[in-house]
Nucleic acid binder design. Sequence first.
RNA 1: GGAGAGAUGGCUGAGUGGUCGAAAGCGCUCGCCUCGAAAGCGAGUGGGUGGGUAGCCCCCGCCCCGUGAGUUCGAAUCUCACUCUCUCCGCCA
Length: 425
Amino acid sequence: MLDIKKIRENPELVKDSLTRRGEDTGIVDTLILHDEERRRLVYEVEKLKQRRNEVSNEIAEMKRKGQDTKGAILEMRQVGERIKEMDNAIRQIERKVNDILLSIPNIPHESVPYGKDESENVEVRRWEEPESFDFEPKPHWEIGANLGILDFERAAKISGARFTVFRGAGARLCRALIAFMIDLHTSEHGYTEVYPPVLVNTESMIGTGQLPKFAEDMFKCEGTDYYLAPTAEVPVTNLYRDEILSHDDLPIYHVAYTPCFRAEAGSAGRDTRGLIRQHQFDKVELVKFVKPETSYDELEKLVNNAEEVLKRLGLPYRVVMMCTGDVGFTAAKKYDPEVWMPSYGKYVEISSCSNFEDFQARRANIRYRPRPGAKPEYVHTLNGSGVAIGRTVAAILENYQEADGSVVIPEALRPYMGGLERIEA
RNA sequence: GGAGAGAUGGCUGAGUGGUCGAAAGCGCUCGCCUCGAAAGCGAGUGGGUGGGUAGCCCCCGCCCCGUGAGUUCGAAUCUCACUCUCUCCGCCA
């Protein structure tokens, strides 16, 4: 959410942001119109309330003196009615203002390149070139099925399309990756582990920006106010919702493993095979709460933390900076580390690291005191996958496959696999 | 699921329908004292928002005592609904 005061003072800035994102700018004028009307009404009703407060005190005084209060009470009864009407009008217009505010995307940082869509994202670096195979490499869904560690048919029977059963060494590989990543981030990168609920309420979903705009992407539990969290970003960022943190609490780094749930509405036909696009997948997520002046340094460190996972696993990757047309609703700046996926013949997103500045903090009301006694200010929030488990499994299977159909376990993972060096049929 | 108790400022904890935004204590900030610190003493310490002035340095107002409605000239205080916490019973991973 953007600051209504800032929008009021500089509507062109917001319009420019929307234009760079390739969106319509009309709502800004509508918003400002509503906001002016709202302020006019507030000003009027507050004068009435002041009058009511004054006279009410006079009535108390008069009663104490035993004077007649009938006239004053009668007058105030009318004032009270008028106040009630105006309060209702204000409530309605405030709802409009708020709905619009919640629907305006974040302003991209000045360092974000202009571009209309994902084709104009900018590659910022690469780590290791993909290995070429001296045999025809198989896609991970074939490798996994042949090894008996991925079972898509039975998952379809249990649940439906876009689900997977991991089995034997496959299941263990998931568990190993989770433990490996959490250990790396806690012991070497300074993150504190949390294990949060994955059923979250509407407030939390609004706080991080999934709602109200992206409701169709989420699973909701019928008859409840619970959504299945699409990412640990939601519960972990909302940890400190409606709190005022002390300046020496910051920065706060959290790492969380959770399953993630996505309806994938509108992506029918895309990535239908394999682990790439699932309704349920596991992810280790990194979340930061930082002082505003440090947030862009923190973003770079966050990306590096995600990259370190891929380096240790020996998976070739590149890092892409999202352009204005693809940076996403909530982010001011975003990097996507992408892993090399032989079956796709290209790099595939395996992490997504964003600086939201105060966009989420304002929605979720997460603040801190810059110094003791100072006015609270909004923190900056960041998060990034560190990294997605399912896609990492896919990347390992494909990049570490051998001609005989077996898969070598990356060395960093072997301690977590009971010393297993290779998955064989 | 049943019965009961409760929800007040960073924390603990008072509160009669009428100067209660709220006592007191703790904590915190500043000052005095001290070579320094502690103790002691003194002062100050909530969050929003509208307007004035202009950018939170001031001034005026409005709102906030779990959330939302209601009664009243006036509600932290009365009524209703909801949420959450705690205790007991039942059920249960």
